[in-house]
Amino acid sequence: MKFRMKWIKKLLVWMVCFCFSMMSLLPILWSVLTSFKKYIETQIFPPKILPDQFSLHNYAELFKGSSSIVKPLLSSLEVAVITTVIVLLIAIPAAYSMSRFRTKRTHDIQMWVIGMRMAPAVAVLVPYYIIYSRIGLVNNKGGLIVLYVLSNVTFAVWLLSVFFDGVSKEIEEAAMVDGLGHWGTLLRIVIPLAMNSILIIAAFVFIFSWNELIYAMNLCGQQTQTLPVILSTYASDVSVQYQMMTATQVIQIIPVALITLLIQKNILTGLSFGAVKG
């Protein structure tokens, strides 16, 4: 009896989670359905839930010819992946340092770091456009990556230092005694133990660079356009082609969803560092 109660409770909890996911999913499902429609089908009321025919025409259109979205898609991936890797390389040691060697200045540095995050795009974009156009970095993925690193490294450092605080210091001290230096401890003990948190941060850095529009719009030319720039072209002073826009949106979600699903086995499965701590 008790077993059954527990089971029902679990199922209820799962159902609630399912509902939360549906809140996110339903509008996107509508967007998927819209992506198969013709323009005129998207504009009639009451709307038809299913398109007259499931034609892949809109998607085919996206991959056609010189304006195919394959290149922007790859640019987006490239920029987001490289940004994520660089951000982690810079943020992990910095966060470890902030978490372990706490000095008076740590707090100042942390505040300064987060202050950088508050700079609105206009404060960063215009001066960077001026520099980039002088040194020929406009229309260059490297230039974009530099800005993405700048805007993401701050939040990564902040959160990682908090998560590193949670990693048991006893295990580390034992490792130190065994002759591992700080770098060794960081690599062999702290990073594996805080892997879940690092992955979550990595996912967010990836998503933010994946989504970023304002810098990309002004610093990319045709050869380096990222996917958000393509999406932004649907915001014009003419009729919005919702069927094409939603098709692009769906394509924007797919790679990130796949990557998240791939790494999500690592998030929250196995041992969390909290469990080790106890």
Partner: peptide
Amino acid sequence: VYISDLGYDACYSKEVLIASQKSNE
């Protein structure tokens, strides 16, 4: 021929930015 196409406002901002820096972009 490389064509950078943007929405209305974005296109205006980009052209002014390019012009202000005398960029050959």
